[in-house]
């Protein structure tokens, strides 16, 4: 059931959605994507930044993130983060076909309620580092969460696995992860439809054609 749902989800071609709605605007977008694609070639370090506003107190948002074992609740490709001690942690990312990438990381800077930075330790299958800032936006305006991450895609087989793991669009992945962070903190859970009932995905010609004059 779950597998089937996943397949259905991924069969949605969001690009074609946009093109149906904004056919002409897409020409410009396509040119932009084509032009920037060479920048994301394998092995070049990838830098990702994204921010989001969460309607919870800054201290609470910081504390949630500081407990790194919470990260898999909103970072989709993390399977588990085990906190080893005050600074060190072990991260497991899940990939396609039961593939796993593992590494250990250490917290390199911790300014409670304000800023948290980490990096992977030598020997990591995925050298990476990141920093997250937390900032008050004022009464009823919530907390600004700014994330900056970098990683070095490994060469060869691992690099290919990683590309599959992170997908075509790592920026989108980070954006989705932060959105899930917002959902978890504001409502307790990330939004989902996974596991809901669905009918048969018949091809159109097998569907029941409704005849016009029925009254």
């Amino acid at each position: 059931m779950r597998e089937e749902l996943k397949t259905r989800e991924s069969s949605t071609n969001w690009a074609s959605v946009a093109s149906r709605i904004a056919a002409m605007a897409l020409v410009g977008t396509a040119a932009y994507v084509l032009l920037r694609k060479p920048l994301a070639r394998a092995n070049a370090p990838v830098r990702l930044t994204r921010s989001i506003t969460v309607m919870r107190p800054r201290e609470e948002v910081y504390r949630f993130w500081r407990d790194l074992s919470n990260l898999p609740r909103f970072m989709e490709h993390l399977e588990k983060v085990t906190v080893l001690d005050d600074k060190r942690s072990r991260w497991v990312a899940k990939g396609p076909a039961e593939m796993r990438l593992e590494w250990e990381a250490e917290i390199t800077q911790d300014r409670p309620g304000e800023r948290l930075a980490w990096r992977s330790l030598p020997g990591s299958e995925l050298p990476n580092w990141g920093v997250v800032h937390f900032q008050d936006l004022g009464p009823q305006r919530g907390t600004l969460v700014q994330l900056e991450m970098m990683y070095e895609p490994p060469a060869g087989h691992l690099g290919v696995t990683l590309a599959k793991l992170i997908g075509q669009n790592p920026e989108q992945q980070v954006a989705n992860d932060l959105r899930r962070l917002q959902q978890v903190l504001e409502t307790g859970h990330a939004a989902t439809t996974e596991g809901q009932p669905v009918g048969k995905g018949q091809p159109a010609e097998q569907g029941r054609k409704v005849e016009g004059s029925s009254t």
């Binding site: 859970h189 596991g195 009932p197 009918g199 048969k200 159109a204 569907g207 054609k209 409704v210």
Partner: peptide, 26 residues
Amino acid sequence: MKAVTWQGVGRLGVESVPDPLLLRPD
């Protein structure tokens, strides 16, 4: 349960599907 499903432009199905489950505690 019975449900009405979309089956393409101008096409609907009335079919048996699994009952829905609680997916979140709220």
